[in-house]
């Protein structure tokens, strides 16, 4: 596993389909401070389009997206 980015909190959302990843991350992001990184791990391919849409709307930033062995790791910086 590449560990390029340090995550302040990791959420395991593997196996959860729509709308759960986005619903849970919108709650979880409040548990890190502004400027910190939340890593969401999902297996839902819809997350690849959903998380950027959610980030744009909520004013947060997707720092990096890594796909490995069917797991999608999305690193989100809390900005608001």
């Amino acid at each position: 596993m590449s560990e390029a980015i340090h995550a302040d909190k990791v959420m395991d959302l593997k196996g959860l389909p729509c709308p759960m990843p986005v619903v849970k991350v919108s709650k979880g992001i409040k548990e890190v401070a502004v400027g910190q990184i939340l890593e969401a791990q999902t297996t839902d391919p819809g997350s690849l389009t959903d998380f950027p849409a959610w980030a744009r709307t909520s004013g947060n930033e997707i720092v990096e997206t890594i796909q490995e062995n069917g797991i999608i790791r999305i690193f989100i910086r809390r900005k608001v």
Binding site: C18, P19, V22, V23, V25, S26, A53, W54, T57, S58
Partner: peptide, 11 residues
């Protein structure tokens, strides 16, 4: 309900 809960997630 999927749209409703998703919309809450979108703020």
């Amino acid at each position: 309900f999927i749209i409703a809960t998703g919309a809450v997630a979108m703020g």
